[in-house]
Simulated scan of single mutants.
Amino acid sequence: MARPRKWRHVCCLPQNTLFGPLRLARGEDGPIVMTVEEYETIRLIDLEGLNQESCAERMGVARSTAQAMYRSARRKLADCLVNSRRLLIEGGDYKLCDARETPCGCPRCLRR
Score class of each variant (00 low, 15 high):
residue 12 C to S: 13
residue 12 C to Y: 10
residue 12 C to N: 13
residue 13 L to Y: 10
residue 13 L to R: 08
residue 14 P to I: 02
residue 14 P to D: 07
residue 14 P to C: 10
residue 15 Q to V: 15
residue 15 Q to H: 14
residue 17 T to F: 11
residue 17 T to S: 15
residue 18 L to T: 12
residue 19 F to H: 05
residue 19 F to G: 07
residue 19 F to V: 04
residue 20 G to P: 02
residue 20 G to M: 08
residue 21 P to C: 06
residue 22 L to Y: 13
residue 23 R to S: 15
residue 23 R to M: 13
residue 24 L to E: 15
residue 24 L to Y: 09
residue 25 A to G: 12
residue 25 A to N: 13
residue 25 A to C: 14
residue 26 R to K: 13
residue 27 G to N: 13
residue 28 E to H: 10
residue 28 E to V: 06
residue 29 D to C: 10
residue 29 D to K: 11
residue 30 G to S: 13
residue 30 G to P: 11
residue 30 G to R: 08
residue 31 P to Q: 05
residue 31 P to A: 15
residue 32 I to F: 07
residue 32 I to Y: 02
residue 32 I to D: 04
residue 33 V to R: 06
residue 33 V to K: 08
residue 34 M to G: 01
residue 34 M to K: 03
residue 34 M to A: 00
residue 34 M to N: 01
residue 34 M to H: 03
residue 34 M to W: 01
residue 35 T to F: 04
residue 36 V to C: 10
residue 36 V to Y: 09
residue 37 E to I: 01
residue 37 E to T: 00
residue 38 E to K: 03
residue 38 E to F: 03
residue 38 E to P: 07
residue 38 E to S: 05
residue 39 Y to F: 15
residue 39 Y to I: 05
residue 40 E to W: 02
residue 40 E to G: 08
residue 40 E to P: 07
residue 41 T to V: 10
residue 41 T to R: 06
residue 41 T to W: 00
residue 43 R to M: 09
residue 43 R to E: 11
residue 43 R to N: 05
residue 44 L to C: 07
residue 44 L to W: 02
residue 44 L to M: 12
residue 44 L to Q: 07
residue 45 I to Q: 08
residue 45 I to Y: 08
residue 46 D to M: 03
residue 46 D to P: 05
residue 46 D to A: 12
residue 48 E to G: 06
residue 48 E to D: 15
residue 48 E to A: 08
residue 49 G to I: 09
residue 49 G to P: 04
residue 49 G to T: 08
residue 49 G to A: 06
residue 51 N to L: 05
residue 53 E to N: 11
residue 54 S to W: 09
residue 54 S to V: 04
residue 55 C to E: 04
residue 55 C to K: 01
residue 56 A to N: 05
residue 56 A to P: 03
residue 57 E to R: 15
residue 58 R to H: 07
residue 59 M to A: 00
residue 59 M to W: 01
residue 59 M to D: 02
residue 59 M to S: 00
residue 59 M to Y: 01
residue 60 G to W: 03
residue 60 G to P: 07
residue 61 V to C: 07
residue 61 V to M: 05
residue 61 V to G: 02
residue 61 V to W: 00
residue 62 A to T: 02
residue 63 R to P: 03
residue 63 R to G: 05
residue 63 R to H: 12
residue 63 R to Q: 15
residue 63 R to D: 07
residue 64 S to T: 14
residue 64 S to C: 09
